[in-house]
Design a protein around this nucleic acid. Structure first.
Length: 116
RNA sequence: GCGGAUGGCCGGAUGGCCGCGGGUGACUGUCGGGGCUUGCCUCGGCGUGAUCCGAGGAAAGUCCGGACUCCACAAGGCAACGGUGCCGGGUAACGCCCGGCGGGGGCAACCCCAGGGAAAGCGCCACAGAAAACAGACUACCUGGCUUUCGCCUGCGAAAGCUCGGGAAAAGGUGAAACGGUGGGGUAAGAGCCCACCGCGCCCCUGGCAACAGGGGCGGCACGGCAAGCCCCACCGGGAGCAAUGCCAAAUAGGGAUCGCGCGGGGUUCGCCCCGGGGCCGCCUUGGCCCCAGCAGAUCCGGGUUGGCAGCUUGAGCGUCCUGGCAACAGGCCGCCUAGAGGAAUGGUCAUCACCGGGGCAACCCGGGACAGAAUCCGGCUUACAGGCCGUCCGCGCGU
């Protein structure tokens, strides 16, 4: 069993690169993803919740729920060598049912990987 | 019981499963460095499992006050700018807190106050009103004169009137405010014109550390308000901030400092001496600094960038009790260690219980969770907040 390690994105250029690549919308978030095409098979993920999501409390809660589904889904459904960015939406990210949130992520991942 | 005032506290609980940040020590686990007695010791990173800790009363607004760090800083005087403003106390400090005083509101408990100076000066006082700051007079009042009418009879009286003169500022009405108020005397009518009380001003005495309060005397009223318009007075105040600042490593172009040679005019015994010009330090005086010349040299320095480490949490700390104080608070004994991230942890999800709202006779069912997320750290202020708990006091009603 290969333990795919997951790292968190921290650099602004990485976020911008993802924003220019594939996008897939979901009711409670927006997924951006790209294949880095380098030697490393690391999977990386970043989270963005802008001021549009709400105040600091609302942004934190949205980010935590996104982090929770990413940790649950990505080891099985993510692909090595890819970067993913999850963007929170006002209201929906905090209120959508958790099981549906996970299903949304699986569906959108399939979509961004798809055409390849 | 109802209504009200005020002080303090809490801000769901427990348990599965899966996770995150930090500390501690562990490992037959790995990778790298160092040491040597060459298979051990040691340091660091990663991994694994263990254990402990992990958001708030406002963490918020960033409005005051500090600690800490860097920069600036010769003395005196003057000026400017900003802040504070009853008195006493507390504090590291404050624009904060406590206790008083004065004024205002409330039956009361209690609450509110930007609360120094208006005889230093300038400015302003809307609307209304005759008049808004220095006196003046619209209506009305008193009186003289004149005209008309009437009564008695040749002068007086009464009434009405006047582009007329004088007195007076009590009455009316306006206003936030009208040149002291109320009552009496006085007068042609009136007026501090005189008197009593109240208010106001000055002086004295008593009490109080003081703000101030009480009392006495004198004054015949002279001094309208606004200082959150300028201002005056007293007191306080350097600037920037943890993205401060310090250290390490990597990689490199341009820069800076010191030394050397040289540097306005004149003299020189070659040690120096005399005489300048310009600029800066808020201004002035004393004073200080820099420039008036650069270079082909020598030595040294480290900025910016990226990464890492420190600053970074033991502190004006928290709790029980005791002592002093009306209190804010201070002192003492004992005990405790309570987040330290850096695209930023402190969570996700499920269940049970408690709470609130709705439905139901009930078992129960359905729905809900305020304001809000540490970022160097403290002391305050202000603002936001579902719901709940405890204490003290006041008024009214009832019972004893």
């Amino acid at each position: 069993m290969t333990t795919t390690r997951i790292e968190t994105l921290t650099k602004r250029p990485d976020f911008l690169a993802c924003a220019r690549a594939a996008k897939a919308p979901a009711p409670a978030f927006l997924l951006q993803a790209r294949n880095r095409r380098d030697k490393d098979d690391l999977t990386r993920v970043g989270f963005t919740c802008s001021k549009k999501v709400g105040n600091a409390v609302a942004r934190n809660r949205a980010k935590r729920r996104l982090r929770a589904i990413a940790r649950a889904i990505l080891p099985a459904h993510g692909q090595p060598g890819w970067d993913y960015v999850l963007i929170g939406r006002a209201g929906a990210t905090a209120s959508r049912d958790y099981m549906e949130l996970e299903a949304d992520l699986i569906r959108t991942l399939r979509k961004v990987h798809g055409p390849k």
